[in-house]
Design a binder for these strands. Structure first.
Lengths: 208, 208
DNA sequence: TAGATTGTTAATCGATTAACAATC
DNA sequence: TAGATTGTTAATCGATTAACAATC
């Protein structure tokens, strides 16, 4: 393991793919796999897989391969998903509601522990098993919840002011579904999810 | 313009960013911009922007810059979003419902014109202004709707069989929200949206 | 004309893949 | 031992950025 060299972003993204695939194999009682199996199962080049792992140490045995369970656990540890990760969700609209109900999140250790909105009509209501709280109380609430991850599903007009609150409440990384750029301190990381952009790339590839 | 050379995927993704930004500028009555303005507004390097455009021809005037409206129109044309793009949505659950209600889609010319589900309880019901139809009738329905783009928001267990139907119905590109790989003919393009993967990348960056 | 900014070439940078000695 | 497969180095490939002649 070499903590000096920073890990390329594509490697981190593939790590998630490997991890999901390993979980699947574990569910099917597969015990061992080789980098060639990874290539067949995920489409990612075998050498790429070995190179990706090499940023973090040694994981396999020459001539044998990798133990599925051990590898899954070690990748989970690298990605910090070996324990439950508490997540705040801001914006209790349709998309926010859909995300809270999305079963994949819990399965992969992301637990939404607090839901927030600015709309008085929504504050106090239930969203699945969560009480929707007032955005103005994010900081207060997060003193107890101690989440470092937030998901943002508010309209763009509200996004920046909510972001400022999240940063103030100790949130370190944000998954942003609002179609707008967010200003955050250097220490905070934002990833954008943009449906429009995905659709335009697809649309480009239409032949006519 | 050189149609021989294939356009890099990162260029296509950035084209979407430029387009959204140009729409915003147009809304604010900005008439002209330079590649340096693009860098300030989107964070994308000015040389990168010019290089990206160069795959498709000449767009600006040396010493002057680009006309916002013209550039917006020409990029829209390249991305095939200069006219309304009809889109099918399969999976009338929470996420599907949220996407239909998402105002950004219509604003950027993606109109969801048909919603489908396999659940008898949902078929025939209204989702916003759309009637939920039977997945078994996708082909029939699309003879009229003539969509080439589909959004998939079904559980992973149903994803492949629905995909086969979509391909059969003439769909050419699919935005897949189901957490599983889809098998499609070479001529069909799929893009995956995976929340889990986004969250694991973020989670990795948490310091402790 | 002088200043600004393009489109494009060349240089740099980084990521992917192939090859292979080491090892089980 | 012979066969399989790793971890890592070196080669390849492709994308980003800098530089600049052309042009308004």
């Amino acid at each position: 393991m070499n903590r000096e060299i920073k890990v390329p972003m594509p490697t981190l993204e593939r790590l998630g793919t490997y991890w999901k695939y390993l979980n699947e194999l574990e569910d099917n009682y597969v015990e061992t796999l080789s980098s060639a199996n990874i290539e067949t199962g995920t489409g990612i080049n075998a050498a790429q897989f070995r190179k990706d792992l090499s940023y973090f140490g040694e994981f396999g045995r020459p001539g044998i391969g990798y133990n599925v369970h051990d590898l899954q656990k070690r990748i989970a540890h690298i990605l910090k998903v070996d324990k439950v990760q508490p997540v705040l969700l801001v914006g209790a609209g349709n998309l926010g509601s859909a995300l809270i109900g999305y079963p994949g999140l819990k399965r992969f250790h992301f637990h939404i522990v607090g839901a927030f909105d600015i709309d008085d009509k929504k504050i106090g209501s239930k969203l699945w098993d969560l009480d929707v709280m007032d955005v103005r109380r994010i900081k207060e609430a997060n003193e107890e919840l101690e989440a470092k991850i937030a998901i943002l599903t508010v309209p763009p007009s509200a996004a920046q002011s909510v972001t400022d609150r999240l940063v103030d409440a100790g949130i370190k990384v944000i998954l942003n579904f609002a179609p707008c750029a967010l200003h955050v301190p250097e220490s905070v990381l934002v990833r954008e999810v943009c449906f429009i952009q995905e659709l335009t790339v697809l649309s480009y590839h239409l032949s006519s």
